[in-house]
Simulated assay, not measured.
Amino acid sequence: MHDISRHVKKYKVLENIAKIDHLTGVANRCTLEKAIIKNWQECIVDKQPLSFILIDIDFFKLFNDNFGHVKGDKCLQKVAQTIEDCLPSKDSLVARYGGEEFAVVLPRSHVSNAEMIAKRIQEKILNINFRDIGLPANVKISVSQGLACEYNNQYRTSEALICAADTALYRAKSEGRNKLCIR
C-alpha cells in the first residue's frame, strides 16, 4: 500500500503558495479575484450588500527611498497584518492588490459598516510602530482609501464595483491623501 500522506502535505503547501502573497501573508490577487466573483454572485442572489475597499499606502516610494526596500517590505507586512486584524469576520478578505495597494472584500456589509471598518483601518495604520524594525518612533505612515458598495443593483458587474472603489481611491489621493472617499 502506498502512503499518500507526504503527497497530501506537499499538495497543501503548494495550494497555500498559490493562494497567498509570499511577502505579506495575506491573500494574493488571484485569490481576491475568485473571492470577489463568488461574493458578487452571492450578493446578487441573496440581495445582500457587498463592500469593497482599495487601500494605498501614501508616499510609499519615499518610505522605500528613505529606509530601504527591506524595511519597506517589513512595512508592507505590518500594514497587511493591521488590515487583517481589523476585519470583522472570517468571510471578509484582505488581499495584496499590487505593490503597496491592498483590497478588502466585505460580504453582507452595508456602506455604513464598511466605512466604520475603513476608518478603523486608517486609525490603526496611523498608529503602527516601526521601532521594532530599527526606525525612529516618529516614523509614521498613512493610507488613502476608496470604498464602494453594491446594494440593490447599483453596479452591473463586480468589475464596475472595483472601478468605483478605484475612482474613490484616486479622489482620496487627489484631495490630499490620508483620507477615505466613498463612491
Rank of each mutant, 00 (worst) to 15 (best):
V26A: 01
L54W: 01
K10C: 08
A35R: 09
E115G: 00
E84R: 09
R156Y: 04
D58L: 03
P136S: 15
V70P: 01
L126P: 02
A160M: 14
L50K: 13
V104G: 06
Q122D: 09
S109K: 10
R177F: 11
D3Y: 02
I44Y: 01
E84P: 00
Q154L: 14
N28Q: 08
S89P: 00
F130T: 10
D65P: 02
P136F: 10
A95W: 02
R108H: 09
A80V: 06
D58R: 00
E123N: 12
A172Y: 03
P88C: 08
V143F: 04
R177P: 08
E33R: 08
T24D: 11
R131V: 14
G134R: 07
A137V: 14
K12N: 15
T31A: 10
L106A: 15
Q77D: 11
Y11P: 03
M116R: 05
S174D: 13
A95C: 05
Q77W: 07
A172P: 01
A118C: 03
V105Y: 00
I83A: 08
Q48D: 09
G99Q: 07
V13Q: 12
N64S: 04
N178H: 13
F67W: 15
L161M: 06
L14D: 06
A18T: 14
N66P: 01
N153Q: 15
V70F: 12
S92K: 07
C149N: 15
P136I: 11
C86I: 09
I128W: 06
A95L: 06
I121E: 01
C43L: 03
R6V: 11
Q77I: 11
N28F: 01
E15T: 14
